[in-house]
Design a protein around this nucleic acid. Structure first.
Length: 563
RNA sequence: CGGGGCGUGGCGCAGCCUGGUAGCGCACCUGCUUUGGGAGCAGGGGGUCGGAGGUUCGAAUCCUCUCGCCCCGACCA
């Protein structure tokens, strides 16, 4: 591609409203432009990146026997009523000129299951893996960070259809294979982590996470361990408890409502305190969740432990059913107590609220002083231990997920088959997503430096940028033209900066756009007989390449050597 | 949905407090010079000041409403 003819609007300055690095650099390098909140246009260079990612995905999906198809973005609302998902807030709704109700698909479980229910009749038709790369529409409450969370985006979504759970396990394993390869080939740092299956149930799920500062998720990492913080479990750091007493003793703690205030007032470590978190469940039960003072309640785990959704209790409900807010605790109350595992079985006395104003209790011991049910309901923290190794928490972008659906969709949509005994069975499904745009954004975030982007070779908009110095008609520009032609003839993926611009501008743009290999041909090259070669990663100067009839081949070899 | 911020030429901003008919840098166009790290000189084009209403002799500026965008939080199949 000749840069003189390319729409590549690079910017010196970052857009005023951009925060995330991938947002800033995506716009500055001329890859994407915004049309509205969460609505982005992929400009030619950015689209090349997207398409290279798509190509990797297609190859790996085909390799596990996936078959590509394409389903509509616009769908009849009735279809979504059958699964109840027409009530989701993120659904974009529209109607046609006749008043028929339509939605924009936020994923395609309904559509693909609809077709499979008609097309699959026999166990002989299974298993099946179908996939597509298609737009999704989601009315996100808060689009953010450029291309990271948008209201319209292309997703690779695949769906597996199996005869039974064992079949699903096999299809799931195939997707793990394909996904591992896709993210590896994309050049990302990535983790496959256990994830929350959510209220939809399902028998298992993993997420693929790419660590980077702009990420919206957090992963807990230790050698051999990776999990979304939503589900991560680990051994807590040690607690420093107060003295054991024969029975709880009241202490005066005037005005001390927070963990900090109470631990300061009593001169005790925050780990000696119990934090009480009253919640009201969807079925209107009040439960007191209790974690260690320095720990935080994990709402995902708590939801799992409760077996239903919940909301924090209001101050009024707390006063009515437990005690004055700020001074509540699990001793001598009538509502059930859900105690975090980290609190159970420790030697020593805990501090809790006394359920009276300005009073706390010391020397409290679970089991002796209050009844409880134990569960893992806290969020892991930096320094917690897994298999003897401390974990660290890192921000990450979710670039993919895989989910064992079971019969969540096949049942309401009537996707059944006849087994060998002629018995009608529900098809067992899985669904699997990848966001190519997020892979691009994560690649930018993970590999950028102060000069710009440093793309992984596999998804760079071009693998080579040939910078020609010298004005039109100069011998060096003519030599560059010749070299460009030779590179293209050998199948090189080359961006040729043939613009009528100064060297500074060309080098700056090249470093901003971040093609892995930069070849410079100027007057000096003609004098010395050598091309200058720079690897974008680390801005490393490589050995010069002789300027002769073998140059193009040597350049491609050099590129192949790059990691 | 709660909180905060911002809308002035393609981009980044000043002007607003204290009303007087819009300015700066970059980019763009023409010409000449320049060509190894975002060039120089000269000339030039481009703005309903997000929108509507109001106050006023006069509104980018003051008032009311409204739309859009960003950030934090909530939410996130």
């Amino acid at each position: 591609m000749r840069m003189s003819q390319l729409l590549l609007p690079t910017e010196r300055e970052a857009p005023a409203d951009a925060q995330a690095l991938s947002h800033i650099l995506g716009v500055r390098a001329g890859l994407v432009r915004q049309l509205g909140a969460g609505l982005w246009t992929w400009l030619p260079a950015g689209l090349r990146v997207h398409q290279k990612i798509e190509a990797i995905i297609r190859e790996e999906m085909n390799a596990i026997g996936g078959q590509e198809l394409l389903m509509p973005l616009i769908q009849p609302r009735d279809l979504w009523k059958k699964t109840g998902r027409d009530q989701i807030d993120e659904i974009f709704s529209l109607s046609d000129r006749k008043g028929a109700e339509l939605v924009l698909a936020m994923t395609h479980e309904e559509a693909v299951t609809f077709h499979v229910s008609q097309l699959v009749r026999s166990y002989r038709d299974l298993p099946l893996i179908l996939y597509q790369l298609q737009l999704k529409g989601r009315d996100e409450p808060r689009p953010r960070a450029g291309v990271l969370r948008t209201r319209e985006f292309i997703m690779k979504d695949s769906y597996s259809f199996d005869r039974d759970e064992a079949g699903l396990e096999a299809s799931y394993a195939k997707h793990i294979e394909a996904y591992d390869r896709i993210f590896e080939r994309s050049g990302l740092e990535w983790y496959r982590v256990e994830s929350d299956v959510g209220v939809m149930g399902g028998s298992g799920a993993h997420e693929y996470m790419a660590p980077c500062p702009a990420g919206e998720n957090e992963v807990a990492l230790a050698p051999g361990y990776a999990a979304n913080v939503e589900v991560a479990s680990a051994e807590p750091s040690a607690a420093t408890l107060g003295d054991r007493l024969g029975e709880p003793a009241e202490v005066s703690t005037p005005g001390a409502k927070t963990i900090e205030q109470v631990s300061a007032a009593l001169e005790l470590d925050p780990t000696a305190l119990l934090k009480a978190f009253p919640v009201v469940t969807d079925s209107d039960k009040t439960v007191l969740a209790v974690v260690r003072g320095d720990h935080r309640v994990n709402e995902f785990k708590l939801r799992t432990a409760l077996g239903e959704g919940f909301r924090p209790a209001t101050d009024e409900e707390i006063s009515d059913q437990i005690g004055p807010p700020g001074f509540i605790g699990p001793v001598s109350i009538t509502i059930p107590v859900l105690l975090d595992d980290a609190v159970v079985g420790q030697e020593g006395g805990w501090v809790t609220g006394a359920n009276s104003r300005d009073l706390h209790l010391v020397g409290v011991e679970p089991g002796r002083d209050f009844e409880f049910e134990a569960a893992d309901i806290r969020s892991v923290e930096d320094g917690d231990v897994v298999d003897g190794a401390p974990i660290r928490l890192e921000a990450a972008i979710e670039v993919g997920n895989i989910f064992k659906l079971g019969t969540r969709y096949s049942e309401p949509l009537g996707a059944t088959f006849l087994d060998q005994d002629g018995m009608k069975q529900d098809i067992v499904m899985g669904s699997y997503g990848i966001g190519p745009a997020r892979i691009a954004a994560a690649a930018i975030e993970q590999n950028a430096d102060e000069k710009g982007i440093a793309w992984p070779k596999s998804i760079a908009p071009w693998q080579i940028e040939l910078v020609a110095l010298g004005k039109a008609g100069s011998p060096e520009l003519e030599a560059a033209e010749k070299l460009y032609g030779e590179l293209v003839a050998l199948g090189g993926d080359v961006l040729f900066d043939d613009r009528d611009a100064g060297p500074g501008e060309k080098f700056t743009d090249a470093e901003l756009l971040g093609c892995p290999l930069r070849i410079t041909l100027g007057k000096r090259s003609l004098e010395s007989g050598a091309l200058e070669v720079q690897a974008r990663r680390g801005l490393a100067e490589l050995d010069p390449i002789a300027l002769d009839e073998s140059s193009a081949a040597v350049i491609l070899e050099t590129l192949a050597q790059l990691p």
